[in-house]
Design a protein around this nucleic acid. Sequence first.
DNA 1: TAATTTAACTTGCATTTTAAAAGTTAAATT
DNA 2: AATTTAACTTTTAAAATGCAAGTTAAATTA
Lengths: 132, 132
Amino acid sequence: MTKRSDCPISNVLDHVGDKWSLLIIRDLMFFGKHSYSELQNSEEKMATNILSSRLEKLETHGLINKQPDKKDKRKKVYQLTASGIDLLPILLEMILWSAKHAPELTIPTQLVERAQSDKAGLINELIANINR
Amino acid sequence: MTKRSDCPISNVLDHVGDKWSLLIIRDLMFFGKHSYSELQNSEEKMATNILSSRLEKLETHGLINKQPDKKDKRKKVYQLTASGIDLLPILLEMILWSAKHAPELTIPTQLVERAQSDKAGLINELIANINR
DNA sequence: TAATTTAACTTGCATTTTAAAAGTTAAATT
DNA sequence: AATTTAACTTTTAAAATGCAAGTTAAATTA
């Protein structure tokens, strides 16, 4: 996706404005996934060629990086970069939106309450656990 | 987009996870646009058939509503619903992400500073000015 | 150590979506 | 009465997606 305008919202969408990219970010951020096969097994089951092309785009855009696994040479380790990690507040607000407007979904009450009472603290805490 | 999983993030993406939907929301939220032709003239120039299909989807999903204009019978008035308005925090976080990570974009300093020092107050203030 | 399995992809192809341009209809304006 | 405007729809080509199968190197198992 090439740059469409100088709008900061449009800019974010140029990076992650599709059905899949933010799910990859989610898996790296919240679920401790780091490998291709782990990402492929997420609940939404994205096609492998799409996963591949999205990882490439996210890496090109500097939101994730890719390194060889030191123990298993077949594997690659995918990690969020600093700018990828900074997408967390956007994801958190999405969770809160669904908590309010999609009550049929079961969303961890604790997370939602914490987000409402101490958003900044929660964000710091979550960030501290990413990529570890 | 049919429901892909019970994930709250995936859920939001099922509503607005594409290149265009959030730009429509942005125009209704920040730029006081309310008609088809105004939306069509935004900087990113979305194709008219795509605008049409996105408006239909957003309306079906309950994020916007559509009413006949009372003065000009050719016109329709598009407005954010309560759940559409509640996307504001997501958009705000996108603006803040770009303010931090896309310094080449010129983003209103005042808005960014206000968002950083008094996010809740800013959100209330912005909401008070939507659909008026 | 040979055979099998795993991980991370790529390729091919049918289907779906998008983009660009032109066309339609009703209402307003000139 | 003729023209313009607003809100679309239609058409068609191009691009993206989704699905299945195939590839390659490395690790594991028999």
